[in-house]
Design a protein around this nucleic acid. Structure first.
Lengths: 336, 336
DNA sequence: ATGAAAGCGCTAACAC
DNA sequence: GTGTTAGCGCTTTCAT
């Protein structure tokens, strides 16, 4: 391993000078700078980032804590962070929290040991107090996918209520009047918010959803299939069902179709997230786009800014809007 | 931030002693050890891993280089690594190579700057020479998903030929005699190997595939759809098509069905990878399981062992077998 | 059993 | 414009 001393010796200058040219600092003669640069190149010198982090009390890494990287949604999140991080030459430190409170805490701790001053967390467990305390110690902490009033300027989140509302309005426009909902037992608040938005939209038209047509299940394909059965068994009629997310929507659609119910001819389905899967299933799924990759990239930039103690951002909030992606899983009832 | 000195002062002992108890080293009195432990706990002391990495010349991180984290396959890979890494208290440093040679190199370099002695790389570009040179400098380098003879003991790979062969045999058993192939222009060698295996299996039965029924395209859903059209336009008959991977297979199936060709009634389709998508599409896709998460976890353990200069492993190779997952996209022609 | 001290590779005052 | 030097937080000989 070639160190700064080796380079200094080879160039016949001090380590301070090497450090200066590495960082494009001033106070180095043109001739000297050129010579050092050449030698660095020749020797293949690369600063040891651990030493840098030690002396700077901050490492050029951005930490990310998500429940499970193998899930498409979180993979996209990580990719968004990585993209933004690479552009400013930061590295990505990753940990899965596995939907467990202790693991989530351990993940954060380990990031801190690494002098990681920027952390993007998709927190499902830690309560507001814990996160608020953390934010005091980690200037670059950013919470993605959740809004905490006391941490308003470090939350990058999605308007789930609007998402639900948009779906409701869209379905109404298409002439639907009998709705069902497939929601999740997921412990964060997104499911409730989305349903809330939906109900709000329907309410304006005086439409309600009977409780037997609100099925709750796990937020994956199996959950969707289970919910489909529950809906069918209720015996109640519905022309459209709104699912918590794409995974549930696809499980639901498939189960419906397996039971001889056509989508969208007999029943329309709408999802949420716009995962790849929404394009792979048949019919293609009409869904709300959750721009997670962009949000993650944005969160990364925000995190870096925050980490440099830039107080200007104190008041700014960071709310993203989901948008409807129209595909083929919804039938237009206004034209027979 | 509480440092080792703070703890030492609070405990009235030297930093050496603290270090000893932190690492459960010997030569510390029982009473003293207990007291220090308590103080560490109280003060919430956590060793600075950058300082540790600096003095140890090695950091407890494992680096991973993959093309694109947002792709399901690589997300699973990363998850496998993370899982194994967390168990031994290692952190994950991630970089995307974006299918570009320079980025791949930059990614490796950046990992080295971090004193990362264990690196798992899904390399699509670097040639064998480059990687061999790298392996000399990075003891824990492991190549996943590719076999390089000169690096045999650090390659964790899949028997793609066997995979293709298994598919061929299975289809043969099901009475298929007219085959088509949808392969990829992907620049690594997997596609060729899989086709090779398939052809080998067919050859034993004296069956060949006309070149007009070997469609080549990009390895995603659109590529699969494109290939489907090419196959149909060839005018040749085929009862089964073998796709390079699940993405292509699903694109292909959907396109076939959109064109009024039923799967599996008219045409059978087989994929490769066993992504989530294979379970989401209709019919559910019969495919080869690529146990990437397990392989990644295995690769991680291997990498750590290698990094501790354990020469014992010099001769061992690490080949995994894909296994057939039977679902509903293949028709049994032997029973009308 | 415990401590003193050197040094890992680097940066940033400060001196010249 | 360039060099000297004092650490950053930690580990590890070597004394005691």
């Amino acid at each position: 391993m070639v160190t700064i001393k080796d380079v200094a010796r080879a160039a016949g200058v001090s380590t301070a000078t090497i450090s200066r040219v590495v960082h494009n600092g001033g106070n180095v003669g043109d001739e000297c700078r050129a010579r050092v640069k050449k030698i660095i190149e020749e020797m293949g010198y690369r600063p040891n980032s651990n030493a840098q982090a030690l002396v700077n009390r901050s490492s050029k890494t951005i930490g990310i804590v998500t429940p499970k990287l193998s899930m498409s949604f979180f993979g996209s999140l990580a990719s968004g962070v990585e993209k933004a991080a690479r552009e400013i030459n930061y590295k990505l430190l990753m940990t899965n929290s596995l939907y467990e409170k202790e693991t989530e805490q351990a993940a954060i701790d380990s990031l801190r040991e690494h002098n990681c001053k920027s952390i993007i967390i998709h927190s499902d467990y830690s309560d507001e107090k814990t996160l608020a305390k953390l934010a005091k110690e980690i200037p670059g902490l950013v919470v993605i996918n959740r809004f905490l009033p006391s941490l308003a300027n470090r939350c990058v989140w999605l308007d789930n209520v609007s998402g639900g509302q948009q779906i409701g309005q869209y379905l109404l426009e298409k002439g639907h009047k009998e709705f069902a909902v497939v929601t999740s037992v997921y412990k964060n608040r997104d499911p409730d918010l989305r349903v809330q938005g939906l109900l709000k939209a329907l309410e304006d038209e005086g439409i309600t959803i009977p409780s037997s047509l609100i099925a709750q299940s796990t937020s994956n394909m199996e959950g969707g299939a289970l919910a489909a059965r529950a809906l069918i068994e209720s015996g109640k009629k519905f022309t459209a069902v709104v699912a918590y997310n794409d995974l549930m929507a696809v499980g639901l659609m498939n189960e419906l179709q397996d039971q001889g119910i056509r989508v969208p001819e007999d029943v329309s389905v709408v999802g949420f997230d716009n995962l790849d899967i929404a394009n792979a299933c048949r019919p293609r799924l009409t869904t709300m786009c959750y721009p997670i990759e962009e949000m993650a990239a944005y969160a990364t930039e925000l995190s870096i800014e925050l980490a440099q103690e830039n107080k200007k951002l104190a008041q700014k909030t960071h709310l993203f809007m989901p948008t409807l992606i129209e595909r083929n899983s919804v039938r237009d009832l206004t034209q027979k």
